[in-house]
Design a protein around this nucleic acid. Structure first.
Length: 428
RNA sequence: GGUGGGCUUCCGGAGCGGUCAAACGGGGCAGACUGUAAAUCUGCUGGCUCACGCCUUCUUUGGUUCGAAUCCAAGGCCCACCA
């Protein structure tokens, strides 16, 4: 199976600037390929997985991979897929984010060269910082035409949106991304840019520029993958409106694992193809499992395992699984305070002095611990039966007793079915 | 620069002097049912007390009024069209 066919089979191909046959042929010889990442946060999130996996597949197939971090473009903001203007980042923020992103990427990509073709990380700020406005307008600006720029989807959507315009700064984004491709083409011989389908306009800005400068025969192509949504049409990678991050400080290993474990049946096979390196034959087996015994959620389990292992390592995976087996196994009986602490290491916790805990209603204590945004919310929860102490329902009138404190110092508060908090009690 | 339109609680969006903590929808949270599901149904969704009530909110600052999200003035930001 060719690389191109494999990518297609994994739902990683949406559109390409040349014919499918041509793209398939090109991918069979070593190329230099690039994809960009916005340094909008100090670590990547699940939404970046598709780009990362595409690059990883390409690298494994022997292509030279460049990960471009948009230190310069990140300070402007890509209008693609955005309904309103982005907040601009400061230089320091962008710089901090760069480091984190490289570390995140190294979990998937080989930057060391163990496989012979190490991935490269570049920052486009490096080639923009010394570029003056006037030289840039003279040398690069003249190569862009208004009509194609205005006709880009990202621009049209914004201009046509009610009560929503677009600043010149954002409009010029495509020039920068286009120039990035040209720059990498010149410096690294990069001839392919990959990205999400929302990047199509930006990618073609690059291929057009290259053809304009280097001639129509210069090889420069774009390949996009579809944006991943779940079966409900929601953008992939958000849980309760919050992004799933790759850093365990921002998304605990436990939550990360749980996020994938809760994947819908309708999505899980597609996700396995997109987000794991599992052979397609193995995924076909799992598809049978979903069809025959959906309640076992075997495919979800494998998906969560694979991704958690890649992102958080074998230890992270074990910790997440151990926590899950306890939390969903029912009772906390027989567990020592030490065991609980290690299981709940990843779960939000708070420390309160004993006299603020014992004898007080559970909901009040939970609110005081900061598990809820207000006491009213905690009270509501208790009333509706959504508040639990040590895995037992705690109504509005339930107070914390000495006996509730495991090992004299711990209590587990649960909101609803699946949100856990660990309360630590200290003497004074 | 000119003219018009707008800024409401997480989002969208009603409200146009008191009956407004503010309709409705979405989202979110919770409960029942379940497979740690989906779908469905139910409740909740500014804060404090939760019973009344009180407090802080409707871009900002002043003002008019017994009383303003609602009226007036000035400022800020956004949008559209014209130039």
């Amino acid at each position: 199976m060719t690389l191109f066919k494999m990518l297609q089979a994994r739902h990683l191909v949406e559109a390409h600037t040349c014919s499918a046959e041509e793209m398939e042929r090109l991918l069979e010889q070593p190329l230099t390929v690039y994809a960009g990442f916005d340094p909008t946060a100090e670590c990547l999130q699940a939404g970046n997985f598709v780009t990362i996996m595409t690059l990883a597949h390409l690298q494994r197939a022997g292509h030279k991979v460049i990960a471009l971090v948009g230190g310069a473009t990140g300070m402007i903001g890509d209008p693609s897929g955005r309904s309103s203007e982005r907040n601009m980042l400061t230089e320091e923020q962008v710089h901090r984010n760069l480091e984190g992103i490289k570390e995140n990427l190294s979990r998937f990509l080989d930057f060391e060269g163990k496989c012979g073709n190490p991935a490269v990380l570049v920052n486009n700020y490096d080639w923009y910082k010394g570029y003056g406005l006037i030289p840039f307008l003279r040398e690069v600006g003249t190569l862009f035409r208004m009509r194609p720029m205005l006709s880009k989807d990202s621009v049209q959507k914004r201009l046509n949106a009610e009560n929503n315009g677009m600043s010149f700064t954002e409009f010029s984004y495509q020039i920068l991304q286009g120039y990035d491709f040209y720059h990498l083409r010149k410096e690294y011989g990069c001839s392919l840019e990959v990205g999400g389908s929302d990047q199509w306009g930006n990618i073609t800005a690059g291929t057009d520029l290259i053809h304009r400068v280097l001639g129509p025969d210069a090889v420069a192509n774009g390949l996009t993958f579809p944006l991943v949504c779940d079966a409900n049409g929601q953008k992939f990678g958000k849980s309760a409106g919050n992004a799933i991050f790759l850093n365990k400080e921002k998304t605990s290993v436990y939550d990360f694992y749980q996020f994938f474990l809760r994947t819908l049946d309708a999505d899980v096979i597609r996700y396995l193809k997109i987000f794991t390196f599992l052979p397609l034959e193995r995924i076909a087996e799992l598809e049978q499992c979903v069809a025959r015994e959906p309640e076992r959620r075997e495919a979800q389990r494998v998906l969560a395992e694979e991704l958690t292992r890649t992102v958080h390592g074998e230890d992270g995976l074990r910790a997440a699984q151990r926590a899950a087996s306890v939390l969903f196994g029912g009772s906390l009986d027989g567990l020592s305070a030490e065991e609980l602490e290690s299981i709940f290491k990843e779960v939000p916790s708070a420390v309160l002095p004993r006299e603020q805990v014992v004898g007080h209603p559970v909901f009040e204590v939970a609110a005081a611990a900061g598990f809820f945004s207000s006491k009213g919310e905690a009270r509501r929860l208790a009333r509706q039966g959504g508040l639990n102490l040590n895995n037992a329902k705690a109504g509005e009138g339930r107070t914390v007793a000495d006996a509730d404190l495991i090992g004299g110092r711990l209590a587990v508060v649960r909101q609803g079915r699946k949100n856990y908090f660990l309360l630590k009690v200290v003497a004074q």
